[in-house]
Design a protein around this nucleic acid. Structure first.
Lengths: 338, 338
DNA sequence: CTGTTAGCGCGTTCAA
DNA sequence: TTGAACGCGCTAACAG
């Protein structure tokens, strides 16, 4: 049988409230503190979080709703967030939305019933309605990596359009003009496409319709299929560089060019996102826009914690971080050709 | 403010216990049942899990401790398990051990304090001591994917040695003799190495020391580095096939051979584990031993659920599943050469 | 600083 | 079947 606070009382002869106060960080006479500490050890006492929560109306648990946990980026972000939560003494219930809006809505409901103190979410839906039930229950919500357009919510994101623009401008500076883009139609994918278009427009470069390939969701096969299509273009039209909007996509792209015996950066230049395993291991090393994943995680956790403390009104926080270019060898400098 | 069972009482005029009984599936007069159902809807009532748990001593939450959530296999397994738990109405607290035994031990303690009803664990440590505090608290534990040697625990695993042996025998049947292996020194890696060795021995083939490459943990770079080393061997000694013990490893292997312009299966044959994205997308398609991931997940959940129900003594369950060979085009048949 | 008292929301006795 | 009372383990208010 588990020991309760009453057992500690019997062991020490102190009142319940004294013990409770000590357990919650209050001041107690040194001699009593010692008694309590000894009893706690002796009885292997752990406070019952449920009884505690019944009164405090806090579960010390937060919910993490992620669009897809089986991807590399998501898995890693989950890892960082989980670590931070644990360090803060919070438990984390992770819910995988599997890129499905309905499951996502279900997940939120589930977390509300579990009475989590707060919710961290990387959304699938671009409509905030699915969060209604959490808001009714007055549960703080922070979105990260993706922000819901127009929503009155705390969020931590990076400037995806700017990052993509930087990447494409890097290509343009090196003499590339025929630049293709492979991206998804959701959140970050779309924003990065915009950055690509901005850069091209700004440089006065046209975008041939066949230079943009996109599917609904970021995936390895998106990169693979897209690249195949690009490489099937008549030689003269072939892009000299491909910008891709995500790590999984890059994986597919690399598979496709390797398969066709196309060399990078000799025949084609590549630029992508995130310094994840493949991008680091491959040769040539991929030139990438590096997202500050740990910072995204820690900012999101920080904001959520702040909101958990402030019962009152705290202004909406919108943190916009930026990605940094990390040079590899996957981009050829065409200017040195002459 | 949240509505409680008392509000339902006020709304319906019934006694608390009547309502409580209905909520827990008991028999109630039809007219009363209707009243209650209406009130529940009207007040948007949800039972308070904490108050409930205080009495029943159940949290309807289980803990999932995973060796490393940022890997593809782990992420996917987490996804499956999470789905099943949600379907069973259970919450899941996921803890990432990050391949670290100390964090793993911490995770278990954390879950015990959270009073989870049960724990699912893919262990890092090969010593069961870290589970002691959960056992003292009488929390059922099921390990999956990996079983702790000698431990008196429910577990769901596949026969890794057999699977590896099947894979290597597949190579041998096709005339390969110079077969190298890249594996990790932990759990599944070691078992798969044994299967490799068994197959080689059984076929009367020697294993040159330089044909085995291993590191502590499965990773992309393990595959990459290992392959580089193998390819650096004098041409005559070069293996005609590589057996690799894990998906991430395969990723690295593929990167390395592509980089060197080595063709598969022309110059070298490959066989690996798991039908995950890369293995499906790449060309040639990888020949792999497919682990029944969903079955591993569902069996583990099933056993845990059974143990949660049976307060009494249930015999230890050890489920051993097997992997199946899925042919791709990554293995060359050397016999047809003649 | 300490002890007493009163619930938090619910499930479970019993009695009717 | 139903209703009243009790208590799960703990914290919060107050009085000492």
């Amino acid at each position: 049988m588990e020991s309760t606070i009453k057992d500690i009382k019997r062991e020490t002869g102190l009142a319940l409230s004294t013990i409770s106060k000590y357990l919650n960080g209050g001041n107690v006479r040194p001699e009593n503190r010692k008694k309590i500490e000894e009893a706690v050890k002796k009885l292997d006492y752990h406070p019952n979080e449920m009884a505690r929560g019944l009164i405090t109306r806090k579960t010390r648990t937060i919910g993490f709703v992620i669009y897809d946990i089986s991807g590399t980026f998501g898995g890693l972000l989950t890892h960082f967030v989980g670590d931070l939560m644990r360090q803060s003494g919070y438990g984390m219930i992770i819910c995988d939305s599997n890129n499905d809006k309905d499951i996502e809505a279900q997940n939120i409901k589930f977390l509300v019933e579990k009475k989590v103190d707060g919710i961290l979410v990387i959304p699938v839906s671009s409509d905030e309605d699915f969060l209604d039930c959490a808001r009714r229950a007055d549960i703080p919500i922070v979105t990260l990596d993706r922000s819901i357009p127009g929503a009155h919510l705390d969020c931590v994101t990076i400037d995806n359009a700017a990052a993509a623009q930087t990447a494409v401008e890097y290509l343009i500076e090196r003499g590339h003009e025929k630049i293709a883009a492979i991206y998804s139609e959701e959140y970050t994918g779309k924003q990065r496409r915009d950055g690509y278009r901005n850069a091209m427009k700004k440089a006065g470069l046209g975008i041939s319709g066949s230079y943009e390939y996109h599917e609904k969701i970021h995936s390895v096969s998106l990169g693979y299929t897209g690249t195949k299509k690009l490489l099937a273009l008549p030689k003269k039209e072939r892009p000299t560089a491909i910008f891709m909007s995500n790590y999984e996509v890059a994986l597919g792209v690399v598979m496709a060019i390797n398969e066709q015996g196309i060399s990078c950066p000799g025949d084609i230049s590549l630029i992508s996102f995130d310094a994840l395993t493949l991008n680091l291991v491959m040769k040539p090393m991929m030139t990438v826009m590096v997202q500050p994943m740990e910072e995204i995680a820690s900012e999101a956790v920080r904001i959520l914690m702040a909101r958990l403390q402030s019962d009152g009104q705290m202004a909406i926080q919108r943190v916009l971080l930026s990605a940094e270019l990390r040079e590899g060898d996957s981009v050829r400098d065409l200017r040195s050709r002459r």
